[in-house]
Design a protein around this nucleic acid. Structure first.
Length: 486
RNA sequence: GUAGAUGUAGGCUAGUUGGUAAGCCGUCGGCCUCUCAAGCCGGAGAUCGCGGGUUCGACUCCCGUCAUCUGCACCA
């Protein structure tokens, strides 16, 4: 039976290189064995849902050339492929679990749960998790309370004793004692399923035979195994890939690295190169070859060629690969790539609009917008403009640091539109008792390398979130290194 | 804290019947060249996390230990 695998991203932000990484291995495995590659959108989190994100993820994966056989955009026999459109399916399956007693309703309030957690932390308990308060409620009574509209969740009833083994094909058998597994919430009080329920139900219904995902899921896999068992379903084969890391070995994060696929596209990495580079992180041909095409990877793909460790994502090697591949491009192909990836008409138009009033000659245009391109900037010409009256460089650095951290936590601002950025920035100044002018000057210099530039927030939006983050990080490092004026 | 995973040069990897480590990126130097890039040549860099054990011999097998990472949400 040909395998069926899937990639299941959540539309909660920009398309992540980690998603591409996992997608690549799924893709290679499926294609190698003539199987199917499914794309499913896991949008069960109402809070973190980000409009436009789904579209961006599909676009990014398509740009990379990782095509899927079934998905929300291409359809398929196992749809819908968006979890928010499958709610009745989860409810129906939950009923089965409730009826068989493998799940139970829990009426505990947030407050009780928070307090429980606090108590467990204070007591330095070895196990942090639900205490089973509602575990033995009479099912009939619980149902009545539920029908009466009392808010509740549904939890998985994890067996008291014993253990569950996860037969991971990359790591070998991994055992988990049931005493360490929490009675996981399966249905949230808002009526949406959690990842665990939706994921298992969908994987089964969609005929997924091999679950290839990031190592971050390893610890919750026993819950999933238990769920398959509760439903009486055959579990898929598990493969947990090592996580992509920052240079300090922590999980790859935007705090330390640009992680958006869009960023790599805009900076002009070739899609095939990015894929090739990602492949070398964990996969090897078995010989000295490390430059290979997607098709070559597919043809050679075997799990014995995949290493389980979490590789450091080293942008310098990516750049070396990319430079090599650009050199190998025909003049025609080079032109095409520059025009479609870098000088995109829509982006150019926005740039032109920002430059319009400031142009003296038409060809001022290019030097004027030059900072919209490229990665890091040279700040030496403006280094003496970095001092903010009454603030030390250190204070400025700290403020900028908080600024980029907080932007991400603001549901509006993280969409990176000019309006949202302005609102956020102004209120940020107010909260920190900084003059907008002072912060905005630092931002302008950091982002453009100049003291005079187009309107700041339009500039930021057009530069792109990752480029802005990257440059502000550079600026922060510079500020910290500057000797304080007496 | 606890569970699990991972551990070959600064980074990514190769090394699958046990015979003291190979390639790429980076780094350093040289050649070439109007300059830079590219290209070519060369160097440094690993007691294979550490400690035991098995063995004539271990990166490869066994035990222990340490470090790092990830999870421990009504987020995925």
């Amino acid at each position: 039976m040909p395998p069926r695998v899937r990639i299941a991203p959540s539309p909660t932000g920009d398309p992540h290189v980690g998603t591409a990484y996992v997608a690549l291995f799924n893709y290679a495995f499926a294609r190698r064995h003539g199987g199917k590659f499914v794309l499913r959108i896991e949008d069960t989190d109402q809070e973190r849902y980000t409009p436009g994100s789904e579209q961006a993820i599909l676009e990014a994966l398509r740009w990379l050339g990782l095509s899927w056989d079934e998905g929300p955009d291409v359809g398929g026999e196992h749809g819908p492929y968006r979890q928010s459109e499958r709610l009745p399916i989860y409810r129906e399956h939950l009923t089965t679990l409730l009826d068989s007693g493998r799940a139970y309703r829990c009426f505990c309030t947030r407050e009780r749960l928070d307090e429980l957690r606090r108590a467990q932390m204070a007591a330095k308990a070895s196990f942090l998790g639900y205490d089973g308060h509602c575990r033995d409620l009479d099912p009939g009574e619980a149902q009545q309370r539920a029908e009466a509209g009392q808010p509740h969740v549904v939890r998985l009833r994890v067996p008291k004793g014993g253990r569950t083994v996860v037969a991971d094909r990359l790591h070998g058998d991994v055992e988990f004692s049931h005493s360490e597994i929490d009675d996981q919430v399966l249905l949230k009080s808002d009526g949406f399923p959690t990842y665990h329920l939706a994921n298992v139900v969908d994987d089964h219904l969609m005929g997924i035979t091999h679950v290839i995902r990031g190592e971050e899921w390893m610890s919750s896999t026993p819950k999933h195994v238990l769920l398959y068992d509760a439903f009486g379903w055959e579990e898929p084969q598990w493969y947990h890939l090592g996580l992509l890391r920052n240079y300090d070995k922590s999980k790859l994060s935007k705090r330390k690295n640009p992680v958006s696929i869009i960023h790599y596209r805009e900076l002009g990495f070739l899609p095939s190169t990015l894929l090739n580079f990602l492949a070398t992180l964990g996969f090897s041909m078995g010989d000295d070859r490390e430059r290979f095409s997607l098709q070559e990877m597919v043809d050679a793909f075997e799990w014995s060629k995949v290493s389980p460790g979490g590789p450091v994502f080293d942008p310098r090697k990516l750049e070396a690969f990319n430079a090599d591949d650009i050199r190998a491009l025909s003049p025609e192909a080079l032109y095409e790539h520059v025009m479609t990836q870098v000088l995109r008409p829509d982006r150019l138009r926005t740039m032109l609009a920002l430059a319009h009033e400031r142009l003296i000659r038409l060809d001022d245009f290019i030097p004027y917008v030059s900072f919209f391109f490229g990665a890091s900037l040279d700040y030496t010409p403006v280094v003496d403009k970095l001092h903010v009256k009454g603030r030390t460089f250190k204070q400025s650095a700290k403020l900028l640091h908080e600024y980029i951290e907080l932007i991400e936590r603001d549901p509006e601002a993280r969409a990176f539109t000019p309006e949202a950025l302005e609102n956020f920035s102004r209120s940020f100044c107010e909260r920190n008792d900084w003059k907008p002018r002072d912060l905005f000057t630092l931002l302008r210099i950091g982002i453009s390398g100049r003291t005079a530039a187009p309107p700041l927030f339009d500039t930021m939006a057009l530069c792109g979130k990752d480029r802005v983050r990257m440059r502000l990080r550079d600026l922060i490092a510079l500020l910290k290194a500057l000797p304080e004026a007496k």
